[in-house]
Amino acid sequence: MPSPFEQRILDKLGTERDPEARALLRVELACYWARVGEEHSAEQERQALRHEFANARSPRVSILVMVLEALQAYYGRLDPAARDRLLRANLLSKSFNALDLIALTSAWLAHVDLNQARFDSAVRELHTAIQALAQLSDGVESVRCRIALTLGDANLIVGRVQASQEWYESARLDAIAINDHAGVGAMTYNRAALRVARARFEDVAGLDSGIDRTLLRIDVDTAVNYQSAARLKSLEHLLATTRASQLVYQHKYSDALPVIEALLGTPAVTSRSAQRRLLQADLALALASVGKTAEANRALLQFVTPEADDLPIPSDDAAVMARSAALAFALTGAPDEAQVWHERANRACHDHSLVCESLGSQLQEFRPMRPGQSA
């Protein structure tokens, strides 16, 4: 059964006869499918649109197909190539001075850049998206929702908990207004994941921004339940990673172990990613904490491979995984290695504090948008 968002587009397709207008509706629908994890449907539509508009007779369709391809890459496998497609779509949008497409592509670029720890770039794209949005009056809810969601995430990353709540509420209202279950799902997941991540970082750094840590399990449960009720598939492995992180943070190592082991055995967790590195460190800590010393040592050997140091790891993740490794080494009777990783955790905490100071000052320029406002 189609979701309300899908049904709205299908109803329009039932009456629309113009080929280009129909194509624009079809690509909007395919973008939704990419966001909710309906990969086969999204890919079928992408191929059909590429075939029908191969001669670039509609710049708008071509640009939005690039956005679709970016979302497929991002939601399907967190592929860094998603950013390249968005950049190209953004440049083409600017060349045609298509304000709605500039707002859309810049909002998505900001979202991807934030998640790749390209914070200065994310802020620039947010400004671009908001400036373009201010000149529009119709159909702004989807872009405004994406901007608000990204700013909710950004504020939570730096520990501005109250500000993040205001932005998430703005995103929620716009998502509900257009029946965008994927948007609400992203908000519930991001809020849960980033609250757990921030709580773990603050535990390492000795900080407290006011996150109610007793409610973290409820945050994760809410996200999991919403994804299930709305039949959203694209965030499943990320939700499981958040669950594992929450369990490790709350020292429920026996419960965390099967979740971590299952995740490390799935191709969704790619071999060269911060997600895998954090899971490997947490696996070693969980094994050591339940007395499985030999298995913990094997997990640590996998974690400390030399090539792993070449990976770009966000500073908060680096602090958390270094602390897990340090504790695991200490529990397995390797105090010298434990000290090395404690020092790495401290350096990462310092680096992330500088990031938070810089990004936090830039975020103060933004004020939450409410339905009825264009920016």
Rank of each mutant, 00 (worst) to 15 (best):
R83C: 01
T241H: 10
L238H: 10
E43P: 04
W167F: 14
P19M: 09
L301M: 07
A229S: 12
V27C: 11
R243G: 07
R8D: 13
Q44D: 13
A281H: 03
V259W: 05
R146F: 00
G76P: 00
K12L: 15
D219V: 10
A98E: 06
A192D: 04
G291Q: 09
C356V: 02
P19C: 10
R60V: 03
L285W: 09
T150R: 12
A205N: 04
L151N: 01
A345D: 03
V290E: 14
N190D: 04
A334C: 13
A322H: 04
S3W: 05
S315V: 07
F303S: 02
A284Q: 09
V65D: 09
F303D: 02
G37Q: 05
T15N: 10
S137D: 14
V355A: 02
A345M: 00
L92S: 12
T266D: 15
S142M: 11
V161L: 08
A197Q: 06
V304H: 04
N115G: 12
R17D: 14
A34C: 08
K292G: 14
S353Y: 03
P258D: 03
R323S: 15
Q364Y: 10
K94P: 00
S93D: 01
R85Y: 09
A107I: 03
A286W: 02
D336F: 01
L87F: 06
S273C: 06
A132H: 09
L263D: 11
V143T: 15
L133Q: 12
L149M: 07
L10E: 12
Q275P: 01
V224N: 07
R276A: 13
N90R: 13
A148L: 01
Q227L: 10
K94C: 08
L278N: 06
T188C: 00
R8M: 12
L279D: 09
Q47S: 09
A42C: 06
L359R: 11
V143L: 06
L363Q: 10
Q339P: 03
G76D: 01
L331V: 07
S121E: 13
L25V: 06
A182T: 09
N225G: 09
P19G: 08
I178P: 08
S106Y: 08
R118L: 03
L68E: 04
L235C: 06
A175S: 15
H350M: 09
N55R: 15
L285H: 11
V143E: 08
N190W: 13
E43H: 10
L149T: 14
I178G: 06
C349E: 12
A34S: 13
R298K: 10
L91G: 08
A244N: 05
S170F: 05
L216M: 05
D79W: 01
V161M: 03
V259T: 15
R347T: 13
T214E: 13
P371R: 05
R118W: 01
K292V: 03
A34H: 03
L283A: 09
W108Y: 13
E52A: 05
P371F: 12
A134R: 15
K233M: 05
S273Y: 02
V304R: 04
